[in-house]
Amino acid sequence: MTEIQAGLTVCTVLVVPYIVQAIKTKAMTGNVARWIAISVSTLCGVLTAMAGGMPTDASAWVTSIFAAVGGVQVAYAAFRSVGVTDKWLDALLALGDIKED
């Protein structure tokens, strides 16, 4: 894994949980949100693998994809345990809402 790929993986791990939380609605269960996070992080892992040029061996694909998927799942669990995704992101998303009295 090159420095660019490692940097992209770290960015993916930190950003994807926020994206999933931002699109999460009451109509979407936690299980659906988890699969969306896995799908998005898999796509990001594929793009990360291709950042240094098209990989020629399967291990480069697997490393990038599993690093992104696993990292996002770990980050989401860590963010959720300290309330980052629930409290902070929900507060940021509510900044544009003006409540009428």
Rank of each mutant, 00 (worst) to 15 (best):
I65S: 05
T25V: 10
I4L: 14
M54E: 08
K87M: 07
I4P: 02
D90F: 08
V72G: 02
L93T: 08
G83M: 06
Q5K: 07
S81A: 11
T63P: 00
M1Y: 09
V72K: 01
V69E: 00
R34W: 15
A58F: 12
I4H: 06
W61F: 06
I36S: 00
K87I: 09
I23Y: 15
M50P: 02
D86K: 14
Q21A: 14
L95T: 14
W35N: 06
T48R: 04
E3C: 08
W35C: 05
Q73P: 03
M54D: 09
Q73Y: 04
G30I: 02
M50R: 11
L93E: 04
V69K: 00
V15N: 03
Q73K: 08
M54N: 12
M1L: 09
M54K: 13
G83K: 11
D90I: 05
I4M: 10
T85M: 09
T29H: 07
A68S: 13
S39R: 06
A6Y: 15
Y76G: 01
G30Y: 03
V16S: 00
G96T: 13
K99A: 13
D57G: 13
G71F: 00
G70C: 03
D101M: 10
T85L: 11
A68C: 15
A37S: 10
G96Q: 15
M54A: 12
A75L: 04
V40W: 00
V84C: 05
A33E: 06
F79L: 04
L47G: 05
G83Y: 07
L93M: 14
T12N: 09
